[in-house]
């Protein structure tokens, strides 16, 4: 009886051995929307910060290939999802572009259109990769071991809020830290745009940030000498 048990056990162990099979993926390549490790999955695009004079501006989204590059050009397009409140060809255009042969990355141009209705309300555009004969939507998540050890994130969708009115920009805290600019107001921000002669103040250099307080106080003193106090939309005197 003992020998039977031992024999069965040994046979069972031996039969459990099995050559492992290597599975490989077969199917279409995929395209992923992706952002950097510390970048958000959405943005606010306001035409009040846009230098464009044509009523349209372009916001670029990063796309990358999941799969092997090929030696032919392949079409890529994004599509707006149903949750979007912006209307295609009225508020935005999502063109068909080409992923060049042998390349893995692409900056996709989302064309945004300036209309009267975004002066009062903010519209939302939720985009995703449009599946076509070349590509499906990619797997999501972090990618490891990229160039420069960045950990980019592949996203399923990306949200763009479109408006044409002033809101406190996310970099206002930097202005408060370096330039002692105080609380945000639209009139204050517009005054700064005039002083620096640019609309998108996020493009100010580090030197500009350090020198901001002195520059704004001097400009405001010059303004007040000519026009009197500058009063903002909340009826407060603008000060820096």
């Amino acid at each position: 009886m003992k020998y039977i048990l031992v024999t069965i056990s040994v046979l069972a162990i031996l039969f459990s051995c099995q050559k492992d099979t290597l599975s490989t993926y077969q199917g279409k390549e995929a395209i992923a929307l992706y952002v950097g490790e510390y970048e958000a999955d959405s943005t606010v695009f306001s035409f009040v910060f846009s230098e464009s004079l044509t009523g349209r501006d372009t916001f670029f989204l990063k796309l990358r290939l999941q799969g092997a590059p090929k030696s032919v050009d392949r079409k890529v397009q994004l599509e707006a999802l149903n949750q979007s409140t912006a209307i295609e060809n009225t508020d935005f255009v999502l063109p068909e572009v080409v992923l060049k042969a042998d390349s893995s990355f692409l900056l996709y141009p989302v064309i945004l259109l300036n209309t009267e209705r975004i002066e009062r309300q903010q519209l939302t555009l939720l985009v995703a990769v449009k599946e076509n004969e070349f590509f499906s939507r990619a797997a999501l998540g972090l990618s490891f071991g990229q160039v420069n050890n960045t950990m980019d994130k592949s996203l399923g969708t990306y949200k763009i809020h479109i408006n044409n009115f002033y809101t406190e920009p996310h970099y206002w805290v930097d202005f408060q830290y370096y330039g002692d600019v105080g609380e945000y107001s639209r009139v204050k921000f517009q005054f700064m745009q005039k002083v620096y002669e640019i609309k998108d103040l996020s493009k100010l250099s580090r030197g500009d940030l350090y020198n901001m307080g002195l520059r704004l106080r001097k400009a405001l003193a010059d303004y007040e000498a000519e026009h009197g106090f500058l009063i903002d939309e909340n009826n407060n005197r603008v000060e820096f």
């Binding site: 250099s205 580090r206 030197g207 350090y210 020198n211 002195l214 520059r215 106080r217 001097k218």
Partner: peptide
Amino acid sequence: IMSSDFLTTFSERIE
């Protein structure tokens, strides 16, 4: 040390 592009506009007069 802050930026290789440092030969840029100086501040206004220090108050």
